[in-house]
Simulated scan of single mutants.
Amino acid sequence: MAPRVVAKGYGVLAETILRTAREHGLYVHESAELVGLLMQVDLDSRIPPALYQAIAELLAWLYQLETNGGTPRPP
């Protein structure tokens, strides 16, 4: 099952989403290109197949981050 877009926004809403994620110990990856693509996906919709490769690479990188004590290779 593909991941879903569970939150998105611009301006103050975007800052609130980022702050809340960080407060809950979630890693925030910043990629303007990926954000631009994901902003085109409806909220609560599955990631489209065209983005699977980019999302898979990001998830693999995050897995490395968690398993290597915070020292991953760049995605």
Rank of each mutant, 00 (worst) to 15 (best):
residue 56 A to T: 15
residue 47 I to G: 04
residue 50 A to L: 06
residue 7 A to Y: 02
residue 40 Q to K: 15
residue 1 M to R: 13
residue 72 P to G: 04
residue 4 R to I: 07
residue 47 I to K: 05
residue 18 L to F: 05
residue 50 A to P: 00
residue 36 G to H: 03
residue 26 L to Y: 11
residue 31 S to D: 15
residue 53 Q to S: 11
residue 52 Y to N: 14
residue 32 A to D: 10
residue 48 P to R: 04
residue 15 E to Q: 15
residue 10 Y to P: 00
residue 59 L to F: 10
residue 8 K to D: 01
residue 66 E to H: 11
residue 1 M to C: 05
residue 61 W to L: 09
residue 9 G to K: 01
residue 38 L to P: 02
residue 14 A to I: 04
residue 43 L to V: 04
residue 7 A to G: 14
residue 10 Y to M: 05
residue 75 P to H: 03
residue 56 A to D: 08
residue 30 E to Q: 12
residue 52 Y to T: 09
residue 43 L to M: 10
residue 75 P to Y: 03
residue 45 S to A: 15
residue 22 R to M: 10
residue 33 E to Q: 11
residue 39 M to K: 15
residue 65 L to K: 05
residue 60 A to Q: 11
residue 49 P to M: 01
residue 31 S to T: 02
residue 61 W to D: 06
residue 16 T to D: 09
residue 14 A to Q: 07
residue 40 Q to C: 01
residue 34 L to V: 09
residue 7 A to L: 08
residue 61 W to K: 09
residue 6 V to L: 13
residue 74 P to N: 05
residue 41 V to P: 01
residue 24 H to L: 12
residue 1 M to W: 03
residue 45 S to I: 00
residue 33 E to S: 10
residue 38 L to F: 07
residue 24 H to F: 08
residue 49 P to E: 13
residue 71 T to A: 09
residue 34 L to A: 02
residue 38 L to K: 04
residue 13 L to P: 00
residue 12 V to I: 12
residue 60 A to C: 04
residue 50 A to M: 03
residue 62 L to W: 07
residue 58 L to P: 02
residue 23 E to F: 00
residue 8 K to S: 08
residue 32 A to W: 01
residue 54 A to N: 10
residue 8 K to Q: 14
residue 36 G to Y: 08
residue 29 H to G: 06
residue 38 L to Y: 13
residue 65 L to M: 05
residue 69 G to S: 02
residue 63 Y to W: 06
residue 39 M to S: 12
residue 61 W to P: 01
residue 59 L to H: 01
residue 44 D to H: 13
residue 35 V to W: 02
residue 74 P to C: 05
residue 69 G to R: 06
residue 21 A to T: 04
residue 52 Y to R: 12
residue 69 G to A: 02
residue 56 A to I: 11
residue 6 V to A: 10
residue 37 L to H: 13
residue 9 G to R: 06
residue 12 V to S: 14
residue 70 G to W: 05
residue 51 L to V: 02
residue 69 G to T: 02
residue 39 M to P: 01
residue 23 E to W: 04
residue 50 A to Y: 01
residue 33 E to R: 12
residue 1 M to T: 13
residue 28 V to K: 05
residue 7 A to W: 03
residue 61 W to G: 05
residue 37 L to D: 12
residue 72 P to W: 01
residue 74 P to W: 07
residue 58 L to I: 12
residue 58 L to C: 07
residue 66 E to K: 12
residue 37 L to S: 13
residue 15 E to N: 13
residue 8 K to L: 05
residue 46 R to Y: 12
